[in-house]
Design a protein around this nucleic acid. Sequence first.
DNA 1: CCTACCGATCGGTAGG
DNA 2: CCTACCGATCGGTAGG
Lengths: 219, 219
Amino acid sequence: MGTAASGRSKAESPSKGDRTRESILRVAVDLASVEGLEGLTIGRLADELSMSKSGLFAHFGSKEDLQLATVAAAREIFAEHVLRPALTVEAGVPRLWALCENWIQYIEGKVFKGGCFFAAASFEFDSRSGPVRDAIAAAMKEWLGALTRAVDVAIREKHLKASIDSHQFALEIYSLPIGAHCGFQLLEDKKALKHIRTSILARIQSVATATCPQVKIRR
Amino acid sequence: MGTAASGRSKAESPSKGDRTRESILRVAVDLASVEGLEGLTIGRLADELSMSKSGLFAHFGSKEDLQLATVAAAREIFAEHVLRPALTVEAGVPRLWALCENWIQYIEGKVFKGGCFFAAASFEFDSRSGPVRDAIAAAMKEWLGALTRAVDVAIREKHLKASIDSHQFALEIYSLPIGAHCGFQLLEDKKALKHIRTSILARIQSVATATCPQVKIRR
DNA sequence: CCTACCGATCGGTAGG
DNA sequence: CCTACCGATCGGTAGG
């Protein structure tokens, strides 16, 4: 996957071209989170980086390639901030809650300039077709899958009641922060993130067993 | 508000210009729900309507005016499908539930070609500024406000426990269908809408009093 | 990585 | 409501 600009394959030190590409994508991700993936134009991106359009374009074969590379870069940033830190947390409800907390902090901390890259991209491409839409859908499925797995594990660990439907429950946990994002970013409701933290925690506790470890809102 | 193209004010029959404007906006709303409000270009819209760019443009002073008129038209359609039908339903939990059901049916019935116009517009404009963003935010505040009012009325009618925070509860009810929209439209999860119906109903019932009227999923 | 360029389309205007 | 046009920007290419 990716355009594999350089021929290197092992963990050699990145070439200058690789580093340029990386710095382009870091800016692209921020720009796309504000302007959208379609509004991410090669001209504006080149301007922002003080380089020529064609110089930038040499790193990507087409606009679609640039979009795909931007989605991949955003996915890596999401994994770094939300998914991977949760894997170090105790399996079961503590890990499920860590995923939620990480997601909310990643919004609160404005990891992307324009709020959640994937929330924006999801709604921008949800009625289109093609490779970019597929890449976004794959990323969201990964996230929903991670939540579902965390719920399943929490059931297996007897932290959550076995009677719940893990798919349905995961979809709830998936939905609440998206709504909070909307409240926070568009409606400028300063309480939205706090409210949704409370809602998710209460929802988890409503289906927790007596042997479930305590979880609480991070301070 | 609006560009008020004609000088008529009362309920006279709409002029030919008014009717043209209306038919333009019906197409604009569908196009914007797919391509986004920024991707709604005057050229594409004129093509779709088999009229000239400048002929179409004569109805609006600028692209921003076209976007504002499109938001207003979408708002009217939303009110017609979701808000107004709920006002005929018994106040309290039945009305709250009707708002949710109407929203989900409006997604299921593909009232807009590309899914919910406002979900797309919200995430497209949530990190911009200007009149278009403000119009979208106002529409979403109206919707969240309608939900909050319905919750407050349900508390007053003693359908819901007085201990709940109506703002927080409304934000939950607001969030769940947005997540379901994502599952339905992007992830093509056919169970998403059914799951979220069940989730919302269960959530309402979890804070219902003994005197709350029965509500159930419409068939 | 650059300059210099391509045809197409953008939002918008003049004039009828 | 139209034709005919404007400068700016789009994605992309040639050639170095």
